[in-house]
């Protein structure tokens, strides 16, 4: 990483999150602390029940922590979901336009910005297509363009490629990496796929399950562009997987 700004984009400090009350209370997150550098690509990795989606919701401001603080220092957050979650009554362009309309941007400017964002995800000329007329991978790219339309400084991605086939996924990793480099956005990427985390992340935060705690943080010192099938990626992935299995294994007793 050459062009990293020295500042911190996001500070998570002693965050816990409980759901429910009394005997039925469940703790999703336990005292999670984490600093994310501006422009960093951070992967949150963990098995089921590690609270990764909960943590992402806290960062995106969709939910509030029970204790502790999430400080984005006024930065905007954007969110991308596993299901492309496009609004089915709008076209691809219309979906990308919604965040712009919510921010009160004028029509002419919106049009230009929508075209720009769709070109960025290589969907120029697809603005008038409806979500059902696009493939899964294309829908996710529209969703990515929509997340960028929020002018987010921090992009939260909740297993965005989980439902895609391997080839599409591979290509979208390249696309996401390219766009991340060009825009300098900070990415928080939730996944349960170890190789995907190694392929994309500057750092990987491994969360333990029930409740979610930071189990270990891995720095990924592999030159970009990376390939998901390279030996370096495979080696680190093996190490991370071993650690992940340890964490999961503790729940079997």
């Amino acid at each position: 990483m050459t062009a990293v700004l020295p500042d911190t984009a996001l500070r998570i400090d002693g965050v816990s999150r409980f759901f429910g009350t009394g005997a039925a209370q469940v703790q999703a997150l336990d005292n999670v602390s984490l600093d994310v550098r501006s422009g960093e690509f951070l992967c949150l990795l963990g098995a089921s029940g590690c609270g990764k989606s909960t943590l992402l919701g806290l960062i995106a401001g969709l939910d509030a922590p029970s204790t502790g603080t999430v400080d984005t220092a006024g930065r905007r957050t954007g969110m991308m979901f596993q299901d492309s979650a496009l609004l089915p009554w709008l076209t691809a362009g219309g979906n990308v336009e919604v965040p712009l309309r919510l921010r009160g941007i004028r029509r002419a400017e919106r049009r230009a910005r929508v075209d720009e964002l769709l070109s960025m995800v290589r969907l120029a000329g697809m603005a008038d297509r409806r979500p059902h007329e696009l493939s899964g991978g294309m829908r996710q790219r529209v969703s990515l363009a929509r997340a960028f339309a929020q002018e987010a400084d921090i992009l939260c991605m909740d297993e965005p490629f989980g439902a895609l086939d391997a080839m599409t996924r591979d290509l979208l990793h390249d696309e996401l990496e390219r766009i991340w480099r060009q825009t300098g956005v900070t990415v928080i990427f939730v996944t349960h796929d170890v190789r995907e985390a190694v392929r994309l992340g500057d750092r990987i935060v491994l969360l333990s399950s029930r409740p979610g705690r930071v189990a270990e943080v891995f720095d990924v010192d592999i030159d970009r562009p990376r390939r998901i099938d390279s030996t370096q990626v495979a080696e680190l992935a093996t190490r991370v997987t071993t650690r992940l299995r340890e964490e999961v294994g503790r729940h079997g007793h």
Binding site: H132, L134, S135, G136, M138, T168, L171, E175
Partner: peptide, 14 residues
Amino acid sequence: DPGVLAGLDALDIP
């Protein structure tokens, strides 16, 4: 990318 992605897009569109 552009070629592969464009090819995949063309194949994928319902």
